[in-house]
Structures are given as C-alpha cells and as structure tokens.
C-alpha cells in the first residue's frame, strides 16, 4: 500500500503543478498593467458588447430554425439532419455560441437509436429552452443565469473561478474518461468529496497523441481545494490547491434507491444536465442495470454493452460502483473490489 501511495504522491505532485499553471482553456484573461490598462479595458468592453449582440442574433436564428423544424415535421431528420446540423453548428460558431454549436454537432448521436424521434424532439426542446432562457436571462436568478451563459458558451476565466472561495475536502477520484475531439483529447476526471458529499468534474485538454496531464487515477484520494465554475448545479471545477494524497479506501456512496431523487434535484436546478457522477454503494451489477438488494435497478446506457468487467469484479455480490448518469442510462466508471482496490471500467 505504501508503494502505491508513493506513486500516487509522485503523480499528484506533477499534476498539481500543471493544474495551477493552467491548461489551454478558452478565454484565459490576461490583465494589463500601467498606462494602457484603461484603454485595453475599454477595448474589452466593446468586444464583450459585440459578442453579446452576436450571440443574441445567433440564438434567435436558432429559435426560428427549431420552430421551422417542428413546424414542418422532423420525419426526414435521418436523411437531412446531419448536413443541416453541420451548417447550423457552423453559423453558431460564427455567432460565438460554441456551447450550443457543440450540442447541435452531437445531435447526430441520437439517430442510431430506435426511438430517435423522441430523443431528437427532447434535444430540440432543450435547445429551444436554452435559447429562450438566454433571451430572458436578465429575469433569471444569478446562478441559473450563469448556467445558461456557460451552456451557451460564454467563456469563464480561470482567474475568476480561482477567485471564488474554494471547497476543501478529501476528494475521491471516482472515475476518468478521455474523449478525442478535433485533435484534442478532453479528459474528464470525476471527484466525490468525502465530508462535503459534493461532486466535481475537472476538465483538461491535451493535443491528441501526446501524453495527457497526469492526474491521480481512480481509487486515489487527494486533500485538495476545488474552485467551482459558477452555475445553478455546479460540477465543473478547478484544483485551486492540493496537499497531496491521503489513504482513504472506497468513497462513501448512495443507495441505488436514493439515486433518482438525487438526479431530480440536480435537474431541478439545471434542466440541461446530461451527465452527473453517481457513487452507488451496496449495488449489485446485472447484465443491463445496477440494482440494490431488493432488485430496484437503474438501467445502463444502451451503448454501454454488458459490463463484463464490472460483473467479474462483483460476482453477483454488492459492490461500490461509480457511474456517469446520463438521461439514457448509466455509463460505469469504476468499481471497488472486495479488498477496496479500484478497478477502471
């Protein structure tokens, strides 16, 4: 165990420096000093105003486009959708709304499913809701307004996030996943706070083909301060400071039967949430779901397949398992075996 701890400590140290130094996040602000600072501030203001009006124009075009789609019917979406969405996404990028553009780009994922009309209508409806919410954002409570702006794609500087009060805890690393998108590898690391019970997700990018920034692996626990991006249901965070690894064993989890209420609460605050880390304790994995002792089950995502590794580790017995909740089902991340060792799934 001590050897493992030493490795974790080494990795954590390297990673900690990198996290503080910062990775290529959009819109890293650089404050000028001295005589021309005032001039630059003025430039930034006009720049920001221009952006606001372009985003507003882009989103009202999106509103019209969505109304047009459902007005004429979405039956042909399988044929015409992908090229329409590419065009629309390009226009939204030009309108400086990259968050919405990304959502539009991902629409083609629903076409593989049998119930694609329902899934597509759901996505269109949530896009509509986002555009309307942005139009009326002045009337929204501040945290929800921040959520809307983040989902639309307004950048938030690292400095402004790091300036907020950090949350110190022993953070369990409960899962990670790399996803390649346009020559970049996006790494998501999900964390669970031991005493606060909070959940967090640290996102970092590295060029494809190059080793990603090291981060402690699932199963590790770090004593760290996390600064959360603003929002109504904050999840994304930065590591503001960390004091190294601690030996903590599996994270505390919730019962399967408590998970729906937990998700309902998250969605009530941020209806666009499509990913949330769950840590389930006393969970028995099956071929297509994760159940509690009474057989109440949460389904797995249809694309997840049979979770053979998870089944192998559990052997039909209750285990602690971390999974990413998505509207279509769970995507297993990590399981802790009977000796408390974490196994990536």
């Amino acid at each position: 165990m001590s050897e493992r701890l030493a490795t974790v400590r080494r990795v954590t140290k390297r990673w900690g420096q990198a996290a503080i130094r910062g990775t290529g996040d959009a819109g890293t602000g650089r404050d000028g000093t001295g005589a021309d600072a005032a001039g630059r501030a003025a430039d930034r203001r006009t720049h920001a105003e221009r952006r606001e009006s372009r985003v507003a124009a882009g989103l009202s075009e999106l509103e019209r486009w969505l109304a047009d789609q459902v007005g004429h019917g979405i039956a042909q979406a399988r044929q015409t959708g992908p090229s329409d969405w590419d065009d629309l996404a390009r226009r939204l990028v030009d309108a400086q709304a990259p968050g919405v553009a990304g959502t539009v780009t991902r629409l083609s994922r629903v076409l593989g499913a049998e119930d694609w009309p329902g899934l597509l209508l759901g996505e269109y409806a949530l896009l509509h809701l986002l555009a309307v919410a942005h139009r009326r954002s002045a009337a929204l409570p501040e945290p929800l307004r921040q959520t809307v702006r983040a989902r639309v794609g307004f950048p938030v500087t690292r400095e402004s996030v790091l300036a907020t009060p950090a949350v110190r805890d022993h953070w369990h690393v409960v899962g990670d996943r790399d996803e390649e998108q346009e020559r970049l590898v996006a790494r998501r690391v999900w964390l669970a706070g031991r005493t606060t019970g909070r959940r967090a997700m640290v996102l970092s990018f590295s060029p494809a083909g190059q080793p990603a920034e090291p981060f402690p692996p699932p199963g590790a626990t770090i004593d760290a301060d996390l600064a959360f991006y603003p929002g109504a249901s904050p999840l994304r965070a930065l590591v503001a400071g960390q004091r190294g690894p601690v030996d903590a064993g599996p994270p505390p989890g919730t019962a399967v039967s408590e998970a729906p209420a937990l998700i309902a609460e998250v969605l009530a605050a941020d209806p666009w949430t499509d990913s949330w880390p769950l840590v389930l304790a006393g969970a028995v994995p099956g071929m297509d779901g994760v159940a509690d002792g009474e057989g109440n089950a949460l389904p797995l995502h249809p694309a997840a397949g049979v979770p053979w590794r998870l089944l192998a580790v559990s052997g039909g017995r209750p285990v602690t398992v971390a999974a990413e909740w998505t509207p279509r089902g769970l995507l297993p991340l990590t399981v802790w075996d009977e000796r408390g060792g974490a196994v990536r799934l």
Binding site: D292, A297, P299, G316
Partner: peptide, 28 residues
C-alpha cells in the same frame, strides 16, 4: 411550433427527473 417545443421541454425534464428505478434480473 413554439408551444410544442415548450411543452416538449417541460415533458422531457419531467421524465428525466421523475424516472424511478426499474426491476432487474440479477445473476446468481
């Protein structure tokens, strides 16, 4: 169409937030 989209948004969030646990056949 706007009314349809609004109703759909309400429904989809309601369904996601209101999903209860189902039943699963578990291996021995």
């Amino acid at each position: 169409p706007e009314i349809l989209l609004e109703r759909a948004a309400e429904q989809v969030v309601r369904m996601r937030a209101g999903r209860r646990t189902g039943r699963a056949g578990l291996p021995a």
